[in-house]
Amino acid sequence: MENNTLGKRIKEARLAKKMTQSEVVGDFITRNMLSQIESGSATPSVKTLEYLCKVLEIEPNALLP
């Protein structure tokens, strides 16, 4: 899957929960890293994806095509 698609789905999930980037990242990753993931310019690690799914209360398969 392209980074743009993954990032877009993460951003959509965050906005659906009415959360800011700062609220999502906590102490796990930086807000800047989340911004890069959402814009498609960075690829999250598996651990980061697991963390984001937990915080956003979504299943990992919701991010897959």
Rank of each mutant, 00 (worst) to 15 (best):
E2G: 12
N3R: 13
N4M: 12
N4S: 15
T5E: 14
L6F: 13
L6Y: 09
G7V: 11
G7H: 04
R9Q: 14
E12W: 01
E12Q: 15
A13D: 05
R14C: 05
L15P: 00
A16D: 06
A16C: 06
K17R: 15
K17D: 03
K17P: 01
K17S: 07
K18W: 03
K18R: 15
M19A: 11
M19Y: 10
T20G: 02
Q21L: 10
S22R: 12
S22C: 04
E23D: 13
V24E: 01
V25Y: 02
G26L: 03
G26P: 04
D27Y: 07
I29V: 09
T30Y: 05
R31L: 05
R31W: 04
R31I: 11
N32K: 14
L34H: 01
L34C: 03
S35K: 03
Q36E: 13
Q36A: 13
Q36V: 07
E38S: 09
S39T: 12
S41I: 15
S41Q: 14
S41A: 15
S41D: 11
S41P: 00
A42N: 13
T43A: 11
P44G: 05
P44S: 04
S45P: 06
S45A: 11
K47N: 12
K47C: 05
T48N: 08
T48K: 04
T48C: 11
E50V: 12
E50F: 13
E50T: 12
Y51C: 01
Y51T: 02
L52R: 00
L52T: 00
L52N: 00
C53Q: 01
C53E: 02
V55Y: 00
L56R: 06
L56S: 07
E57S: 13
E57K: 10
I58Y: 01
P60L: 03
N61F: 15
A62R: 11
A62Y: 07
L63D: 05
L64D: 06
L64P: 04
P65C: 08
